[in-house]
Design a protein around this nucleic acid. Structure first.
Lengths: 230, 230
DNA sequence: GTTCGTGTGTCAGGAATATAACATAATTAT
DNA sequence: ATAATTATGTTATATTCCTGACACACGAAC
């Protein structure tokens, strides 16, 4: 399951930018534009992490933060504060009131990602798990192992990255060019047809253990990974 | 179909950069190098969004913007202004003259994407939607799948694009020529009657699962997609 | 009934993909 | 270092599936 993040930010441009980037990174995102709405939305569905602006209409970020901490569901939910002021007082106060981390605007998106990951790893390690399973196929990024139907499968590095990429985006169709970008790398010059060959090799390797072919060919579009379940 | 964006920018390097990035993001891109060309190209094919430089040869961005607003087709088309000057006056003027948003150079590509998405979501939500449902028929552009009455339907690439086009404009009647333009592409020479054949194939594929025919034939005019609901 | 426009079956040609074979590069073992 | 092994990218060939065109049948409009 992809982590569900609640962004609480009243400035439209920033909210949109954050939404875009987090969605791209594979998170599920919801936006609240003030503290009150944040409380309502957090109650509706408990987020895995909250990104909260310090200054908010109706209910300040600090106050919203405090109230979230009083509820059982959101008591341990990681909260990152976004603040425009850089002074030390805010920092202390922010952390006192229950934020787990804070960032001073303007901040870099990669840094925000890094902190987000760090907090999620602490709070919900399973969400960032390196092991992904789809149907009877399992891929372990840490151990660089692939299992299909209980038995271990040996893949070359390229096929491994290919499968990994597919399994992180199940169901979605990727063109050969997209796969080259994502799996081979941006500035590598490789024939598009080469993708076919690796798809074939991946299929052959998986077929040894699993009956059905998890890779779907979409004529004139590319390939997609999917199990019967999806 | 993927959103069609018109980029109006005379600086070659920037235009190419934008083109590259937007295409990669899945947009269809056209480039105009001055205000006049922009007007011509926008008339030829109405863009879903326009990215316009403030400073342009022949016809300034502001003026081009004003003229686009006077035409019915582009009256509601979102326009994002790109300006090198950061002063407040420009900002006001730009928005006064009809731009929906503006960015000051240098801007970050992700932010531009974010704003683009935000404007498109407001103006043409269906363009960003991956899954469209009409009655008992569902089409998924990301996964390239079609379901009719719970069951999966297999379509060839052309039939898929045809159905996609219909479902994004439910109820509207398209002539064979319009369909050839939209589905086959502008510069393809194909017999108009071929559309009939593909309509037939699409109907046959859908009929397997759904009783009623969602495609209406409009004698001497063309075809339209509509479900009982509409 | 005649005319015009549309539905459908068929077919050849072509486009896209799968597969096998090979040469080369990279990695690992000795 | 050298040899052995494995992985990689390309090309050629086989195969599958799609496409566009045509002919004829059918049905609506007048």
């Amino acid at each position: 399951m992809q982590p569900y993040i609640l962004i609480v930010e009243d400035e439209d441009a920033l909210a949109t930018l954050l939404e875009y980037n987090f969605e791209k990174e594979g998170y599920e995102v919801a936006i609240a534009i003030d503290g009150e709405e944040a409380l309502v939305m957090a109650a509706e569905r408990t987020p895995d992490l909250i990104l909260m602006d310090w200054m908010l209409p109706k209910l300040s970020g600090v106050e919203a933060c405090r109230r979230l901490r009083r509820r059982k569901e959101t008591q341990a939910t990681p909260i990152i504060m976004l603040t425009a002021r850089a002074d030390e007082t805010d920092k202390i106060t922010g952390l006192d009131y229950g934020a787990d981390d804070y960032l001073v605007k303007p901040f870099s998106i990669p840094e925000l990602f890094a902190r987000t990951r760090a907090l999620l790893r602490r709070a919900k390690p399973s969400l960032l798990e390196d092991v992904i399973r789809q149907g009877s196929i399992e891929i372990d990024n840490k151990a660089f192992r692939v299992k299909a139907g209980e038995k271990e499968v040996h893949l070359g590095p390229t096929e491994f990255r290919l499968l990994d990429h597919f399994m992180r985006h199940p169901g979605r169709v990727f063109s050969r060019e997209q796969l080259l970008d994502a799996v081979w790398g941006r500035d590598v010059y490789v024939e598009a047809r080469t993708v076919d060959v690796h798809i074939g090799r991946l299929r052959k390797a998986l077929k040894k253990n699993v009956e059905i072919d998890p890779i779907r060919t979409v004529r004139s579009a590319g390939y997609a990974f999917e199990t019967a379940a999806s």
